[in-house]
């Protein structure tokens, strides 16, 4: 079987708690009806203020939600996504949770056997803390980064860009 998800890993993942498992963003279309255009990738443009304090961020990647309005030809919707944010010394780092294999949502320390890595439950993809994909697992590149900043003590999230931490 090629989908390479072992029972143990998946059970671990599913049992580790709804809070972190429900890491995926929530999308609530304002005219909650049609479906497809909502999925259009909408990387945030300008910096978005979050409700997480910079002082709460540690060296352990934390889920930071950010919300923006997305407009397309037909309707406007409110989209909540998130980034994994941590401190490297004094520097804030924000990574996209979208797996570079086929797009599932990755979780920090989602696999018991790899407490210091991002884990993708779909086909057991692994990434190191800087977002580098672990060779031998399906992902084809490192996790994207987000611009991240500090505004009045709160984390802000900006544009998404290709990972520059791993070269």
């Amino acid at each position: 079987m090629s989908s390479k998800v072992t029972r143990r890993q998946f059970l671990n993942y599913s049992l580790m708690g709804v809070g972190s498992f429900m890491a995926a963003g929530m999308i609530l279309p304002m005219g909650r009806f049609a479906l497809d255009p909502l999925f259009k990738d909408a990387a945030a443009g300008s910096d978005i203020q979050t409700s997480i304090k910079v002082s709460e961020i540690t060296e352990e990647p934390t889920k930071v939600d950010f919300t923006y309005n997305q407009k397309d030809a037909w309707y406007e919707s409110e989209v909540t996504e998130f980034a994994w944010v941590y401190k490297d010394g004094d520097k804030l780092i924000a990574l996209s949770p979208v797996c570079k294999h086929l797009g599932c949502t990755v979780t920090w320390a989602g696999d018991d056997g790899n407490p210091d890595k991002f884990f993708c439950p779909c086909h057991n993809g692994l990434y190191t803390k800087d977002g580098n994909n672990v060779p031998g697992t399906p992902p084809r590149g490192p996790l994207d980064q987000y611009e991240v900043g500090d505004k009045d003590g709160f984390v802000t999230i900006g544009k998404r860009f290709e990972n520059e931490l791993v070269k």
């Binding site: 995926a24 999308i27 479906l35 999925f39 599932c104 949502t105 993708c120 779909c122």
Partner: peptide
């Protein structure tokens, strides 16, 4: 119909690749 679409959207986010 409305409710199931919201569920589907979350499923898609979480497990798109499978």
């Amino acid at each position: 119909i409305e409710f199931i679409q919201l569920i589907i959207m979350m499923l898609e986010k979480q497990l798109k690749g499978r």
